[in-house]
Write a protein that binds this DNA or RNA. Structure first.
Lengths: 206, 206, 206, 206
DNA sequence: TATGAATGAGTCTTCATTCAT
DNA sequence: TATGAATGAAGACTCATTCAT
């Protein structure tokens, strides 16, 4: 029993790894099956087609993806700048614990936009809502002289850039960064702090 | 003669387009040949294998890729902060005129890191050299009280994140950003200014 | 108990429908099982293989098939021509109430003749017996000047051709025949009458 | 050169044999390729898909099929009954020289009607035209007391039934018919004569 | 009996690559 | 140089069949 439940699961997890690293085109159903320790036919038994398996991987990650994009802004009650700090930090942490997700997401979803209309609609709605809420706060805070004014969308893009890009570039950066990356945990801590600092200074009234 | 040179060239250019958009795995040699208006066999006549053709595309772009990564730091003679501004700006412009390059490059390297050892060696050397040069300047400037101290590599990563990520995410951001992206040129100008502003503020002594 | 019997039966009936419409190669055991509302494995539990299931369908229909081929000649006691009329008519009716059978049967035999040796033996014996009986009658009747002489096998082939072919071609004929087929019952009546008329005239002494 | 031209042709001919005997579902592209003495990939090189190869086989035979259906009726100047005799005879001959065609035609085309709309349209038009022309002749001749009246479509169906069915049933009839089929040529002659006789008698004024 | 899970063998198809001309 | 033809290797997918429970 236990085994059979996990077989379907195993395939999904193997697929995730394979798709995350190699993308849809580069992934091989045979290789996914081998990774999962099941026969090739089994994969088709459970998921019918490569396409559908891929969609299941997307489904499984879609809420994470959305969280990845938006958890950084606009939640509850704390002074605006404090709240922003926390948001950036937790956003960074989400990405850090799913480091392949940004690459996969940008790569696959961008190269096959037609497939993600639904998700995009969702994101679009959430995005606009959050942006307008945050913009109101920014307008207020800046009128009160607490922060420098900025377009909420620009702010968002800066945060996401700073938080996501290092993970996308990580495999590449490793060789260039010397000892900075020797201890990865410590690097991530520093990087998170740096991102927060950068954004805070961007908003600080001078 | 003229013709033959340009035929080889045509294939390379078609390959570039195809590889940039679809990646190595998604690209089809037949499709590249068709795009170039040559027979499929011709492509192999000139470039032997898909792999080699791909490498030629990389070669052709490698200096651009390096520029994309590094032109952001340390060149001419000007006060440090002014020079940095110019560097960020011109780096942004390079990326802007090759908007598909970052995505392609990061994408392919992640899925086949073994292929880029040579290039990575090159980059590693340049990187370390530049970082140490810039670090010296930063140390000096900060000692003189002109700027806030920062690890040159962190600074570099911030700049590259801010300058590259928007292009990687552009096709995706379109739906979320509303009217901000209606006029793309104007958006890019704003974004460039924002990135410079963000970095300047990060370094500004308070 | 009742249930189990009928489950086996259900499968057989579904198989019949599927095989009749799609043929052996086009039929899918999964689809037959679904049609019958049983699990796929159940089908194999009862009938072992697709091949054996197919044979059971043939077995179930073999007497009908034979009737379809042979009921057209020689049975009860009536004057020869009257008897023939009745035979042709009832033969036509049998076919009419199993319109898919001729097509299926001829079709499968042509593509896999080796499978029907047994049945063919049976048919061969019956056929020869009937032909010789009928031939004797024909010889007699023609000697008495009641009918035109004909080889019994030729007569048989004419009858079967006229009675079977319309059903084989029916789905195809629909488009060509215009209003003739608008009312199918009435068409079948006309066709039956026509076939009888054609055979009667063939035998009529002039 | 000669060879290459014939390779494409060879595949088509092998496909025809395979499709004629086994139908679309039963046919195997590997088997067709083997039959033609080419690699399996070659088949796809020339014909892309099994479906398209099948269509080419249909195309190749479609005019023959139409001839098979209609050459029997309504051509030029000869007394009506003589002309009819000739038509039946030549129709029989066409079928005799393509004995697998009727089976294939009825089997495949009937089981996938959606694919043959175009052909059906063609046939429909030809059919209706011919039927009405022939009907006029029949009406005339019967008014003049030369023949028994009959619906042209019924006449057509009788002819086609008599001429086609023996070929469809041939593999099946072989065992039952005894010595009648020992000499196939002679049987076909007899059968043709019988069909003509049957139709002539059907029309003969008594 | 009944079934969900599992699988091997095969089927169509694609594609990079090679070869004869 | 140039090309149409040819091919092997691999890929996704299907399906009848079996098996443990």
């Amino acid at each position: 029993m236990q085994d059979k439940v996990s077989k379907e699961q195993l395939i999904l997890e193997s697929a995730e790894q394979e798709f995350f690293i190699k993308g849809f085109d580069g992934a091989r159903t045979t290789s996914i099956a081998k990774r999962a320790g099941v026969t090739h036919a089994m994969l088709h038994y459970y998921y019918r087609t490569k396409e559908q398996l891929f969609e299941r991987v997307i489904d499984k990650n879609v809420s994470l993806i959305i969280a990845t994009m938006f958890s950084s802004l606009g939640k509850a009650d704390m002074p605006f700048l404090d709240r922003l700090k926390v948001s950036i930090s937790s956003h960074f942490d989400i990405v850090a614990s799913n480091p392949l997700l940004p690459h996969f997401f940008l790569n696959e979803i961008i190269s096959r936009p037609e497939r993600y209309n639904m998700m995009q609609n969702k994101l679009e709605t959430s995005a606009k809502e959050i942006f307008s809420k945050v913009q109101i706060e920014i307008d207020e805070q800046s009128k009160q002289g607490n922060i420098e004014w900025i377009d909420a969308r620009m702010l968002f893009m800066s945060i996401v850039s700073l938080n996501l890009f290092p993970f996308i570039a990580l495999p590449f950066a490793k060789r260039m960064m010397g000892d900075l990356l020797d201890n990865q945990d410590s690097f991530l801590e520093q990087r998170k702090a740096e991102n927060i600092e950068t954004i805070m200074r961007r908003l600080k009234k001078q």
